[in-house]
Design a protein around this nucleic acid. Sequence first.
DNA 1: GGCGGAGCAGATAACGGTAACATGATTGCG
DNA 2: CGCAATCATGTTACCGTTATCTGCTCCGCC
Lengths: 339, 339
Amino acid sequence: MNTKRTRRPLTLRDVSEASGVSEMTVSRVLRNRGDVSAATREKVLTAARTLGYVPNKIAGGLASQRVNLVAVVIPSLSNMVFPDVLGGISAELDDTGLQPVVGVTNYSPSREDAVLYDMLSWRPSGVILAGLEHSKAARAMLDNAGLPVVEIMDVDGEPIDTAVGISHRRAGAEMADEILAAGYRRIGFIGTHMPEDHRARKRLAGFEERLGEHGVQLAAREYYQGGSSLLKGREMTERILAREPDLDFLYFSNDMIGAGGLLWCMEKGYDIPGRLGLAGFNGVELLDGLPMRLTTTDARRIDIGRRAARLVAGKEARPENGIIALAPTIMPGETIRKH
Amino acid sequence: MNTKRTRRPLTLRDVSEASGVSEMTVSRVLRNRGDVSAATREKVLTAARTLGYVPNKIAGGLASQRVNLVAVVIPSLSNMVFPDVLGGISAELDDTGLQPVVGVTNYSPSREDAVLYDMLSWRPSGVILAGLEHSKAARAMLDNAGLPVVEIMDVDGEPIDTAVGISHRRAGAEMADEILAAGYRRIGFIGTHMPEDHRARKRLAGFEERLGEHGVQLAAREYYQGGSSLLKGREMTERILAREPDLDFLYFSNDMIGAGGLLWCMEKGYDIPGRLGLAGFNGVELLDGLPMRLTTTDARRIDIGRRAARLVAGKEARPENGIIALAPTIMPGETIRKH
DNA sequence: GGCGGAGCAGATAACGGTAACATGATTGCG
DNA sequence: CGCAATCATGTTACCGTTATCTGCTCCGCC
């Protein structure tokens, strides 16, 4: 089996010699390109298989000046939102010969620059990256690279090339409408303290602005550090209600802490949605299994992934203004009272 | 900014001309290799920066016969377990110049073959892949590739090269001990119906075997299709208890459905852990925020990722027998009664 | 029966870097 | 002060594949 443990790696030449045709012909067979007789094709394929030849895309990419990779740059893998986006991307890329390669930035702009630089050095066919806020250096790199760039998740801003996402301002505003219409007035907000999470920031801005238009101000806000978890949601909920016991609504900046808050409130016997209403953001699958359905906004993650992939794959044309805005849609749930 | 939109991409030659030194010297500067005077170094870096040059790793990799990539092949991104493993891997790879590239197989052996083939065609420096069960073709490919291969998660079997993981048979057996010691006797099992999830299978085998040693047989079992979610856990729990109402324990094959089952049982007013005990598997963070702490087994995901990364990075030597077995550790929780 | 075009295969020259060796200028030191 | 070691740079030959061009054969058709 591994008689050849120390041998040098196989090349086209090996297959070529084993099958008695030129390297060029082997290359053609292996890529299904150009005309090759059925007989030689068979010979070559057999030889390649028995040798266990695996093509070298490094060499191939250099020669053809084409690399079938799509760089995907996202802030995090751990918050249940980006895996969905990735799912949409790979589903749509599946039949294109393109392959996504993922880089993670941990919400750090400097890491984003580094990851981008690294990705671009592989000369991918396209780039998908989260958010519209990027360093000057990053924008320059992408500008210079001369390839399709799709910024995802957010459309409130100026895309480098194309953007696919939802308006987080709008998502915030629409949730505000919903809450106000239900009659809640003493509203608290719980979110992560991350200056780099621009989408959360915009959501809150849109939310507060709409509240303001109706003469309502946020009655309390609470920020936390680090990742979002059920436990964190519980802690923050307890804290904000200890500080402002007469709040009648809590708007959470994501579903995970929202779910934690919901569980805590239920345990403490709060009348939900009567005495206290709750809402989250994202529309994660987790919510389906909670004792009570948390009201939230569907961030259209899978659709965003799909559309972004279609754009880089050239399956879909870039719109005139470079923006594809999907509609964030409120998923009612049972944590806002009927009105 | 993009006056050069249509220009051909930059190469070393451009930087070389802009800075008045040879391409070789530019290459040396950009890689910090070999001796270069401070003056030229500065000149070159400035030129590279103002041009916006990004090195071409395709060409570099071909020339140097070295590629700083580590292929990571896993079955899924969506079940909260592999993101943790990835976290461990990238943490440990961070200071090595190596970069992980992830491929997802969706638990399909044929997709695993395809993903591996694809990854190997990039000539990575190492491969990390989940599980010990692989097609003959896959084993041959990896054997032939002549690079470090680390199989992760599982150690019950024969590694191709090196394995890092826990014994799932042991994990199952130890949980059985725990359950029996607490006096439960009418035990049900809920798991996914996936012939390709070998680790779940081994866990169950170890579990049943240990029960058998104590003269106990599984009183019921229930399998489901598709992904694991809280909701699925609820449904399956309801179903198994409808069928076998006098079960006194439920062993779930993962925490997500375990948590769903727990929530359902609490709503229905079951006395837990008195009348009914519950246990899951994995030790996911989610459990921290539930109304009651689910007993589970820590699968050592982050450690596994770290050790695997250390092995491919050469920070750690391959052990004699090729197996690094970490101890699965039971995390007590409140869903098994004290004994 | 000559000629255009399709079918098939090979020869050659890139692709953009880096390894390895070569070269000229300094430096150290007995 | 002379010679070897070191430093700083350049030259040359690939790395393994694909684009492109060339050449030959065979076929159909006017």
